[in-house]
């Protein structure tokens, strides 16, 4: 059997988002592991319960650890964690809204309504990203 020639990938939206989904997925796992490990190093082992640490791992915002027994919020609310939060939000929102677009395109046929829903998802992505960064820099 003759093997097929490898198709040359063209840099369209589908291909770019296919790559981005893999990269952002790996990054999100890595960011969650970093959140848990650094949280444990900062004293979570004795100062908070598992649920609070998991909330922190999902999104390292200081509001998520306020009702624990940490003595000082300073370690948990600073520029480093703001950068980590922006990374989590940008990766997760883009990964999630793109996933929603893929699911949507599976269950609708091309036409006006699919285009309208795609545009709505795009607007939601831009809006939620801006709001999230505003909230992160304000908290």
């Amino acid at each position: 059997m003759r093997s097929r020639a490898m198709p040359k990938p063209s840099w369209n939206l589908e291909y770019l988002m296919w790559i981005f989904t893999r990269i952002s997925g790996l990054s999100l796992i890595l960011l969650a592991v970093l959140g848990i490990s650094l949280g444990l190093l900062m004293g979570a082992r004795t100062q908070m319960d598992m649920g609070t640490l998991m909330r922190w791992a999902f999104f390292p915002n200081s509001n998520h650890v306020l009702d624990s027994e940490i003595p000082d919020i300073f370690l948990w609310a600073n520029g480093f964690w703001q950068i980590m939060q922006i990374l989590v939000v940008v990766f997760a929102a883009t990964h999630g809204f793109n996933g929603l677009r893929v699911v949507l395109e599976d269950y609708t046929s091309p036409g006006f309504w699919q285009a309208a829903l795609r545009f709505l998802i795009f607007l939601l992505w831009v809006f939620s990203g801006l709001v999230a960064i505003y909230v992160i820099l304000g908290s």
């Binding site: 893999r22 997925g25 790996l26 999100l28 796992i29 969650a32 998991m54 999902f58």
Partner: peptide
Amino acid sequence: IVFCAIFHGVNGFRIIVLD
């Protein structure tokens, strides 16, 4: 939601490794 997060993470990792 804990099942969703754990499954999506581990299965996503499997997909990335296979890719």
